[in-house]
Amino acid sequence: MSKSLEIQNLKINTFGINGQTILDVPYFNLEGERELVISGASGSGKTTFLYAIAGLFLKLNGKVSWDRSNLYNLASVERDKWRSQNLGMIFQNFQLLDELSVLDNILVPTGFDSFFCPKDMIYKAEKLADEFSISIHNSTIAHMSRGEKQRIALARALIKDAPIILADEPTASLDEANARNILEHLRKISAEGDKTLIIVSHDPAVMEQIDNKLLLEHGKIIKNTLPTIPNVGAA
């Protein structure tokens, strides 16, 4: 079952006395919906929004609740565990570990739970690599194309079958065909596994395919197409 997300009085400022507000969300609710696309101009706070709901800030003002449990009330150890068990993340710049092999990069999240990587995980990583046309025989990823790196990041996010997938510009580095393929794949996996899929994207194709849209500007929500909205921050 997809997870519910509720945000209340979320405010993130830059550091310092004159710190500027980079995200200000009085209220946001994603309940009963599986998909959301967040868009906005560069610097509008999209990635900050994604990081906030991923629980990546040490602390912040406001509440970010998944299934009615405030993520920022959890101790950092518990929050790490929550991320490990619930999130599959795709970062804007892929954030791969260059010194690891393709397969090891895909398998990184599986190493947090067990000392030896389970064989079924290796099999799954190889299957994902095959699905996304990733050559696992390339031992180093430093010289791979952005498209290839993007697909590895995607495979890494899906390896643990997490119930929430947060994807920051997942199609940005891909050609049209690959972008379509990746998006279809993400949506299919999300639908089949009843996962929550939140995508940050500029891509019109993505915007076109996903019904629920959130538009950010200067850290504020200026448009929200979600049907169940008790309160809209920009209102």
Partner: peptide, 14 residues
């Protein structure tokens, strides 16, 4: 690298 791992949910002990 460590920030990536932590973002992916790596335990602090790891």
């Amino acid at each position: 690298q460590f920030a990536i791992l932590r973002a992916l949910g790596a335990p602090r002990l790891y």
